Simulated assay, not measured.
Amino acid sequence: MSLGDARAVPWQAAAPLRVLGIESSCDETGIALVELPDGVAGTQPAALLAHALHSQIDMHQAYGGVVPELASRDHIRRIVPLLRQTLAEAGQALDAVDVIAYTRGPGLAGALLVGAGMACALGLALGRPVLGVHHLEGHLLSPFLSADPPQFPFVALLVSGGHTQLMRVDGVGAYTLMGETIDDAAGEAFDKSAKMLGLGYPGGPALAALATQGDPKAFALPRPLLRGTELDFSFAGLKTAVWTQQKKLEAAGTFDATRQADLAASTQAAIVDVLVAKSMLALKATGLDRLVVAGGVGANRELRRQLDAQCQRRRVRVHYPELHLCTDNGAMIALAGAMRLRSGRSQPTTDFHFDVLPRWDLASV
């Protein structure tokens, strides 16, 4: 099929629909091939044919955080080898792809441009249309690739590195924001607290690992905005409280390995308590009996344990993405693109003049 043919004929979703997903919003380069059968989006199981992922954690550790320019250059180095790896594992050629989906935003501008440029170059060369996808929508829909996929409608708790949001989800593209962070996100609270405690990068997993050795009740840290029916989040005050407590211990000469673990456990307990309580409030407010948890923080084992317990008590179904799909990845972008196309919420384009949206409100999608 030539490029001219692609533009002349109105696009129709193939059955099955094969979507190549490209993720490059921050510090992971992800490529995946997802197949969605015919039918209404969300009612038929999607198949992850193959995916490949490269994390830049080792590269950024020396700086204690993501360096945007280094991230962009590394995406350029990794993206073609990962594409070849994915196609080889799927046993497919490039011409088996129907649509190429890429992360349009939000994220780091330079990193996003790498994925967008790759997608549009492939689309132009193959005569295949492309579709820009919202990064958080990818996280939101990623549990549909799990062994226990959800059904619409549901309440979604989105907890990625820079975002903490509660959404009512009535279908693909039908999202109502119920609450969000007014300052630091939960992931930022994990990472910044870990940095103050002298833990490695990335801080969240390091703090969670140390917390298993400590007493979560050792320190009475604040649970911001926990009273009443408020669904917004605030974690900046918790970060300050962790810093203040650590300084008190250091001044008293008692900040040893045991107290470090106790402070890590108390910090995690405060974050998890807020996330769980707000999620239960959102379920009560909507009257829904299904919760979806997505994003990198959704891999936290203590968060999952407490959500499982609370949802079981309330007879609520809770769904998570597979652990290996909690972080940024190409599979969630391919799936989100496929579900938007199958539901009629989006149409791909063969106009390869692309842009990216480093800031992009999910409720506007």
Rank of each mutant, 00 (worst) to 15 (best):
V169K: 08
E180G: 05
R345C: 13
H324E: 13
D273R: 00
S55D: 06
G344D: 13
Q44W: 02
M59E: 07
L307T: 08
A47K: 14
G179H: 05
R313G: 08
A336G: 09
Q260N: 00
D308E: 07
L83C: 14
Y320E: 09
L166P: 07
H135D: 06
L49C: 15
C26Y: 06
D170Q: 11
L33W: 06
G295I: 04
G132M: 03
H135S: 06
A111R: 10
D289W: 00
L341E: 12
F352R: 15
L288V: 02
D355V: 10
P45R: 12
E69H: 10
L17E: 06
L113V: 15
E322M: 04
I22R: 03
G298P: 01
A185Y: 02
V242I: 05
I271N: 07
R345F: 02
V356F: 09
Q306A: 05
T43A: 09
P321L: 04
G161A: 11
A15H: 08
V97S: 15
S279I: 01
L124S: 11
A269N: 10
D191A: 07
G91I: 14
P106T: 13
Q56N: 08
H163L: 13
V97H: 13
L48G: 07
D308F: 00
A257L: 00
L281S: 03
T350D: 15
Q165Y: 15
M196T: 03
C26N: 10
S160N: 11
A174N: 09
M332Q: 06
L87M: 15
M196N: 05
M118R: 14
A174S: 14
G287T: 03
A62I: 05
G123L: 10
G39T: 11
L49K: 05
D256H: 00
T176Q: 14
G295Q: 00
I31H: 09
A336F: 08
F233P: 07
A119H: 14
V356Q: 11
S142G: 12
T86G: 10
E250H: 01
G110N: 06
P348N: 15
P10A: 08
T267N: 04
Q260G: 00
S160A: 14
R317S: 14
I100E: 09
L33Y: 13
K217I: 01
L177W: 08
L335V: 11
A194L: 03
L288E: 14
S55Y: 01
V276E: 02
V133M: 06
T43L: 07
G171M: 01
N300G: 01
S72N: 03
A186H: 01
A189W: 06
L53S: 13
S72A: 14
T244S: 04
L131H: 12
D27E: 03
H60G: 08
S343Q: 06
V274T: 11
T164V: 12
A211P: 01
A52V: 03
G107R: 10
S364T: 15
S193C: 14
P106M: 12
F152R: 12
E250M: 10
R259L: 00
T327E: 05
Q44V: 12
L341M: 09
Q260I: 00
A14E: 12
L288K: 04
L122K: 11
L199P: 03
